[in-house]
């Protein structure tokens, strides 16, 4: 909600430079959903436990419910809407479809971002690496097994496309 105490900050959001107005202590989650209209970032708990609100902030996975808008200043932010290239899904998204990594879908945006983040830093993760990378993202539907499969399948697809 722009008000007297709003500040205007410029950031790069999903590859596009733009300015946003909000209170500096507004939650980045709310600014993304309400000002930027990017509702793919979800709120599950509002206290940094569930990871449904995960975004990539300057290349690091962050809970946007705990991130003040002030941190968006000159930042590079990637949300779930910035993962696919047009109609072409990212390998992680394709693998989630193939392996059943998404059920109800509410944790999926955050988990896809956590997986993309993992595979960017660790192109050949072990199952333990996958488990550790997803430890901040709760899923109540899957029991995580299909998600682990999805991430490892995405890793294979990315390796094959690099080869």
């Amino acid at each position: 909600m722009p008000d007297r105490r709003s500040v205007r900050l410029t950031c790069t959001l999903n590859g596009r430079r733009l300015s946003l107005d909000a209170h500096p202590m507004a939650r980045l989650l709310d600014v993304l959903r309400q000002q930027a209209g990017l509702t793919g970032t979800k709120e599950g708990c509002g206290e940094g436990e569930c990871g449904a609100c995960s975004v990539l902030l300057n290349g690091r996975l962050a809970n946007s419910c705990l991130t003040p808008f002030a941190h968006a200043d000159r930042a590079t932010i990637v949300t779930i809407e910035g993962i696919a290239s047009g109609d072409d899904l990212h390998a992680v998204q394709e693998a989630f479809l193939e392996c059943g990594g998404a059920q109800c879908g509410i944790c999926t945006p955050g988990i896809v971002l956590a997986a993309v983040d993992l595979l960017e830093r660790t192109p050949h993760p072990t199952e333990h690496d996958v488990r550790a990378a997803l430890a901040g993202n709760l899923c109540r539907c899957t029991g995580y097994m299909r998600i682990f499969d999805s991430v490892l399948e995405a890793c294979r697809r990315l390796s094959a496309s690099r080869a």
Binding site: T39, T41, T79, I80, I83, L89, F96, L97, G101, G105
Partner: peptide, 23 residues
């Protein structure tokens, strides 16, 4: 057959609309 989830694409891209996504 393990046919892909019908609404899967909307879910993995963040396009699926939950009630708090509409105003």
């Amino acid at each position: 057959r393990s046919v892909h989830r019908k609404e899967g694409r909307a879910k993995v891209t963040g396009q699926a609309l939950y009630v708090d996504d509409v105003a």
